[in-house]
Structure formats: structure tokens, C-alpha cells
Design a protein around this nucleic acid. Structure first.
Lengths: 335, 335
DNA sequence: CTGAAAGCGCTTACAG
DNA sequence: CTGAAAGCGCTTACAG
């Protein structure tokens, strides 16, 4: 049993104990391919390192190398926990195999990305959030060498950025409903949610597909996660009943609509059909079960990693997300 | 508009442009209270830094200071997304006010905590995962100065670590059900879940409370998130119907039980009552709505932060979590 | 109030 | 194959 040293051991300690120079220690421990070191020496170094419990200082090696191995994965706080976990896992696993270490961050204001990136000396940022040019510049000033962002928005831009990768959600919802004979649509946005921009992008997809198919544009309603309030709003709708369906921008609201319908005594499908998005685990468990649209989140994570690996130093890439997502409809009892 | 410099500016560049020494730049930028610097000088330094887009190198300052400002928050992957987000937010917000930067990590094997802590040069680790003595020692060898862990488990320990903070969940479930007249209990564990240890700690709470109240011990069943399978398992139960209730270890399984009951044509409460845990947003939206137990997750996050702030350098604290959690029952239609 | 200088721990040309 | 030495960018006694 070795007593923990008062001071953290350095490569000099390892060199001393193994009887070689610090350079050799570094060569051995980093497996430098340009050096040929005898097996005996390697073993001595490894043994000394193990004996001392030597752990290289990441700060020192980042300082000397001029870069770290850290990739900051900045997630839109709009991504829900379930989906976001799948994305993080996909990216982390893929990049780990290339020797990177991935750290997640998903706090409120995008400016905090800069603080974190700087503090951890991130060599790269993969963002599933929008970056403004100002934030991108700050990141580069903070030494981030590669940046991959879902999209970049000009500060001056009026209105909503389009999130083109969300459009297929709305399109698939409409296609599915139309094929089941529902041609009068209600679109359920969230009430007071940070995720409103996502919901509106999906709504845009719905609008586009209604136009394509020659359907009337949807009636739009904002719903909280409160079944009493949802019931009240449903009663005020002008389009119910009759071949009518609610497109919920995500499953929880869809489940809320189903709950409110139960309270109102409305029949599912006959009075109102419902489709959600995300395929939360509970979507299949509720009664009636919820038809929904699901994207391959883990695939998004991997796609982010792949796009990142293509990047050269000091390269910024934007708008990769559009091609990465593939959605499908999961048909259940609510449609 | 300034062209981005080919090279990242350093404090020497700022010193040159503002006509002072690098020491003065450091004093000004770090607001060193032991120095008195004229307002004019301060302004010149700040202006030069802004002009150059100077961002201090975190690697260099960590190397020189011997420590970073980074706290690694290691979360048990067992924490679900929703709960874990609340915890992270609580901790991050509290520690940010003290000048720390909090980064989350929640990958599978606890050993990866060491890799991340080392790579980001974390000054501290706050863990909601169990730490083994070996991992704790590795963290300290990697330069982590403060460690706060929910609990520490010896490698040699047989059986499950008790997670004492989970016990009240089971106790509250039983208390609530008993007070409603349900005295025959079924405990629903997850089938094939990483979260099984949590479920078993909650089950232990149920067992203890049953003993305290003089109830029969629960019948235990493992359920997947698949309503057909759940229905099959429910039919095989020996204790249904009659003043019987299912304690689900968490809400999703509870919702699955309700779904399976609908498929079986069983009446809620009369044939079987259900209580969950976590109070997921959908728990109130499903039909029938799900009674559940909820802990104050944000408070856990804050409690972790507070406990951390009490720590001295090179101090390790374990077992703080037990007192931090407060649970309550949210009563709905399923009981 | 300011500046010259040391040193944090590492990596890597370069000279043997 | 190995080692002496420079230097990454910062902070901080210390001497003015």
C-alpha cells in the first residue's frame, strides 16, 4: 500500500525513479511513433509511473501542445432529456474512439458556451444550438479550433430562424393524418415553453404539407401541460368534431389532449384523432396509445460526430443537421 | 472590424498595446485585491484586451495556479433525464455564483469519471454516483482536490449498496396506500434496467414500512415497458383483486400498469390501485391520472452545491445525500 | 504603483 | 536509442 504523496507526482519523478530523462518518459507514455525505445526501458517507465500513481497534467500538456482533446457538445436546452441523452451517447461514443473526450453542456443562454469552452480549453465545439456570428467569433478567440453548428443566425435577423430539420416532422404528421382521412387539422403549440421555436418550425412543416396536399391550413392553439386547461381550449375549437385531428408538437401535449378528451367524454378518432412527436417511452403505454413521429436521435449524434471528424483546424461548418435526421411515423390507437 | 489575428493574443500582447508589464495586465484582469492600480491604467488594460479580443488561456492559468475553477458533476446514469436536469440546474446555478464552472458527466462506467476529471483538470468532483475507494484514489492522483460523493462502496462489498435516500420513496408509497385501505401490495421492479439498484432500494423502503405497519410483504414482479407483457404478468399475480395496489418503482412503469389494466378491462382502484414515483409531467395527463411520489430534485442540486462549498481542500465527503431529499405524495386518480 | 524574473508540468526539436 | 534545453501562457513573490 503506497501512501499518497504530499505532492502530485510529475514526469520528472517518473524519470528519476525509472532512471531515464523526462523526454523518454514522455515518449513512452505517449507512444510516440517517431521514437524507438527498448522494451526494457518502456517497461521501467510504465512501472515507475504505476508505482508513483503518475497522472499527466492535462493543463500542462494542453498548454504545451497548444490544444486539448476536449470536445464541447453544446445542446440546445430545447432538446428534451430523453432525446438529448440519445444524441450525447451517439456523439460521445463515436468521438471517444478517435481519442476525443466529449463533455456536454446545455445551459440557458448560448453565451455560456463561450465560458465553458474557454474554461475547459475545448479544442472544438459541436453545437446543436444556433450560434450567432458573435458567439462563433468569441469561441475562436477563446482558442476553439473547430466549430460545428446546426445553424448560424445573424444577430440582425428578424423573426424565427428556420430549423429545416424540423420540417419533416410536420410533413409526416400531415401525410399520416391525411391518409387516415383526417383533413381538418388543429396544431397544438406549447404555451410558454422555451421549445416554442421548435414547435413553430414543425408547424411550418405542417403548413407546407397542407398547401402541397390542398388541405385547409390548420387551426393553431397553444396548450399548457394541464388537462383542465386543455379541455377548455378543446371545447373552444371551431373544427371539432368531424375528420379532425390534433397535431401535437410533441408527445406530452398529445397525451394531455388525450387526457382532456377523456375528461370531456370525446371519442378518440371518431371525435378527434391525435398525433405527437418524439415517441417517449410512455407514448405506447397510455390509453389510448399515442401515434407519434420519431427521429433517430442516436443517429443524429453519430452524424454530428462524423461531420466533426471531417473538419480541418480553424474550420467552421454550419447547417449539417438538415440531412442527418430521419423520421418515421409510429402508428398507434390515437389515429 | 478587426481581422482575427493569426495567433491567439496573449497577456504579453495586451501588455505591449497598453504599455504596461504582463504582471499589471494580470493584476487588472484578475482584480487582484492586494494591488492598487490607477483607474487610468486599468482602463488602458481593459481597452487593449478588448481591442485584441484577448481571452486568457485557461490551461496556462490552471497550470500556474495549480488548480482550475472546474467542478465535475458526475451523475449516476440511473438518474432519468428529467430529474437529472433539475439536479444539474440546481447545482450549476448555486456554484456559478461562487465563481465555479460546472460540467456534467453521466457516462456508463464510473471509471470514466477519472478520465474526464483529468482531461478537464477538474478541481473538484461532485458525484451522485457511488465511488469506490479505488476511483476516489485515482481522482486524487489526477489532482482533484475536493470530492463529494453520495456514497462510497468498498470494492469487496457483497450485495447492493444501500441508497438510504431512496428508502423514503417506498415508505411513502406504502403509507399512502395503507391510508387508502390497500393492504395487499405488489412491487413492480423494472425488467433489465440499469436503474434496478434504485428500484431495489425503494423496494427495501417498502419492505421496511410493511414490517412497521404490520402488512404482508409485497409480491415482487419485474416489468418491461411493454403493455402486452405487463398485462400477461398482471394476470399471473396471486394477489389481485381486492384491496390490492401496485407500487411502481417509477412513473413510466406505473403508466404501463394502467395501460395494461385498460387492456385487461380491470377497474382502477376497485381491482387494482397504482402509485408511481418521479411525477413526470405526463403523470397528471394520463387517464386515469397517476398518483406518485416526488422528490425535490432542484433542492438536491442545491444541497450538493452547499455541501461542496463546505469542503476544504483535499477533503472527501461521503453520504451527504441522505438528508438532502424531501419527498411528498401527489395524490391523483389511480389510488 | 510597476516591472523583471521564476516557475507551474509538459512536449519536442535538436544534438549526441 | 537518450538527454539537455527551450518554451507554451500564465501568476506572483520580490525588488524597486
Amino acid at each position: 500500500m503506497h501512501e499518497p504523496p504530499a505532492r502530485r507526482p510529475t514526469s520528472a519523478d517518473v524519470a528519476r525513479l525509472s532512471g531515464v530523462s523526462r523526454a523518454t518518459v514522455s515518449y513512452v507514455l505517449n507512444d510516440d511513433p517517431r521514437q524507438t525505445i527498448s522494451a526494457a526501458t518502456r517497461r521501467r517507465v510504465h512501472e515507475a509511473a504505476a508505482t508513483l500513481g503518475y497522472v499527466p497534467s492535462a493543463a500542462a500538456s494542453a498548454l504545451r501542445r497548444g490544444r486539448s482533446r476536449l470536445v464541447l457538445l453544446a445542446l440546445d436546452p430545447l432538446f428534451s432529456g430523453h432525446i438529448s441523452d440519445l444524441i450525447v451517447e451517439g456523439t460521445t461514443e463515436r468521438l471517444r474512439r478517435e481519442g476525443y473526450v466529449v463533455v456536454r453542456h446545455s445551459h440557458g443562454r448560448p453565451e455560456t458556451i463561450v465560458d465553458i469552452a474557454r474554461e475547459i480549453s475545448a479544442v472544438a465545439v459541436v453545437s446543436l444550438t444556433f450560434l450567432t456570428p458573435a458567439i462563433r467569433r468569441s469561441l475562436q478567440a477563446a482558442g476553439v479550433r473547430r466549430i460545428l453548428a446546426a445553424a448560424e443566425v445573424s444577430e440582425g435577423l428578424q423573426g424565427l430562424p428556420d430549423r429545416p430539420w424540423e420540417l419533416p416532422v410536420g410533413q409526416l404528421q400531415v401525410d399520416h393524418l391525411a391518409s387516415r382521412g383526417y383533413d381538418r387539422l388543429v396544431y397544438a403549440l406549447p404555451e410558454r415553453s422555451q421549445r416554442l421555436p421548435i414547435a413553430q418550425a414543425r408547424l411550418l412543416g405542417v403548413r407546407m404539407e397542407c398547401a402541397t396536399l390542398g388541405l385547409d391550413q390548420p387551426e393553431v392553439v397553444a396548450l399548457p401541460l394541464d388537462r383542465a386547461v386543455i379541455a377548455r381550449r378543446l371545447r373552444e375549437l371551431s373544427r371539432v368534431p368531424g375528420r379532425t385531428a390534433v397535431c401535437a408538437y410533441e408527445d406530452q401535449i398529445g397525451i394531455g389532449v388525450l387526457g382532456a378528451m377523456a375528461d370531456l367524454g370525446w371519442r378518440v378518432r371518431e371525435d378527434l384523432a391525435v398525433i405527437g412527436c418524439d415517441d417517449l417511452p410512455v407514448a405506447s403505454l397510455v390509453t389510448p396509445s399515442l401515434t407519434t413521429v420519431v427521429g433517430d436521435a442516436a443517429q443524429v449524434g453519430v452524424a454530428a460526430a462524423e461531420a466533426f471528424l471531417q473538419l480541418d483546424d480553424d474550420e467552421v461548418r454550419t447547417g449539417w443537421a438538415a440531412d442527418a435526421l430521419h423520421y418515421t411515423v409510429v402508428e398507434r390507437d390515437s389515429t
